[in-house]
Write a protein that binds this DNA or RNA. Structure first.
Lengths: 239, 239
DNA sequence: ATCGTGTACTGGTCCGACCTCTGAGTCAGT
DNA sequence: ACTGACTCAGAGGTCGGACCAGTACACGAT
């Protein structure tokens, strides 16, 4: 029984781990170019087909980037690149998981707003005002949602934490898209949303972290209620 | 120029989107079995090689599961499955991103502790005590870290939010593993950690959400200081 | 009815061919 | 000497087929 060290995994999985290890150890640095698929396959001792699967896996993870005709490169490895798949989770999830996603957002968004209150500059505040105005003047649901998303994106950006921004970006796209599906104008959601945005903005303008935290929590709380209704029943009994 | 609708993407990427769409729309449900690779390739009009790359991508995302000889299945689509890649982000990240990861954990862990305080039962508290004792008696760094991880895992589990648990799970593995590398016993980290765990436990036992929140924040704050030193310099200037 | 066993089928791996795209070097024209 | 279009080697992208390695079910011996 030769070479029992090789765990009971596929050659592709082993290749993925090896490349990841090279990046984690610093042997491969952000932006660096890798050998060609053919050379990598030879180096790791597998076929080009299997090597391509490994590369594809690392590509969707946001670790590698393949440029047709040019070569394979390590991405910048910034949170925005690596957490792109987080949006997929939000897109596919439904039922009680949808509620859990919103609950996580209810934790993160107030914290982001509080951090933003201490950091946002006049230019950022001006952009927030512009989005609020554009949102109020918007006609189609898609347009309104777009400005809504941008409003929150500016705040998370001002929080100066790319990881936080990437996670919230993933959570928001799904939440707001779902809102579109159910019809944005139901139950007078829009006017209330505008009021809530205004309250968040005022707290940010006054450099009031706690005020921003509370305002954001109220805002997400409304979405949470909706998600709770979506989930159907008692959200306590999970799993 | 026929069929200009096909965006400038690879056939594999299109296949990934199609499968994802089938799942998002409910056409494919959790646990369901998919057609064979060969049938899928024929159905979507591409070669088996490219189809396999698409399946591999969805596999690493935790959406699909391939069983050798048995077929391809949709996973349960639970947060734990889908957010497995989150740990990869933590493993690969370094420098300022490491600090940002800890800062996100500093937001989520106190919230999880507060939620756990309202929900944890006597059995859960007993398990926490067991982990604390085992950790105190531990000898090797790996052993101690293992019980440390389990301590936090029990709390996040008690918070009854799988999404929250999955994210914190990813954040923790990297943080604590890094601690091992740098030597666990430096600067008397271990005794202080034990004290902090004890404070968290007391708050949970007393069903005191705010107390648990504060105790957890203090605990992570210590880790944050370490990460800040790792990052080297002023964490304000990001991106 | 039970237990092996065989066999059809599935994913895993490999190979080799060809296509399309990129990028750098070439070379004619200015 | 400079600029530009052109050429072409090499990169990733796609394909088809062959074979290996597991699984699961049906079949036949007990």
């Amino acid at each position: 029984m030769p070479d029992e060290t090789a765990a009971r995994t596929t050659v592709t999985e082993r290749a993925i781990e090896k490349i990841k290890a090279k990046i984690a150890s610093g042997e491969l640095e952000p932006g660096q170019r890798l050998p060609t698929e053919r050379d990598l396959a030879a180096e790791l001792g597998l076929s080009r087909s299997s090597m391509r699967e490994a590369i594809r896996a690392l590509t969707v993870m946001g670790v590698l980037e393949a440029r047709h005709g040019a070569g394979i490169y390590v991405t910048r490895l910034e949170p925005g690149d690596l957490l792109e798949t987080f949006g997929v989770v939000a897109e596919i999830s439904r039922g009680s998981t949808l509620l859990h996603l919103v609950q996580v957002r209810k934790i993160l968004e107030p914290a982001a707003a509080a951090a933003a209150a201490a950091r946002i500059d006049e230019a950022g505040l001006a952009r927030l005002r512009a989005e609020m105005n554009a949102m109020e003047r918007g006609t189609t649901a898609e347009e309104i949602v777009g400005h809504d998303l941008e409003f929150h994106r500016i705040i998370t950006e001002a929080a100066a934490n790319p990881v936080l921004a990437a996670i919230l970006g993933g959570l928001n796209s799904r939440t707001f898209r779902a809102r579109v599906w159910r019809g944005y104008r139901e139950e007078g959601v829009f006017p209330r949303t505008f009021t809530e945005h205004d309250q968040i903005y005022r707290a940010l303008a006054e450099r009031d972290p706690d005020g921003a935290r509370v305002a954001a929590a109220v805002h997400i709380g409304a979405v949470e209620d909706w998600a709770r209704r979506q989930a159907g029943e008692d959200p306590s009994g999970v799993e």
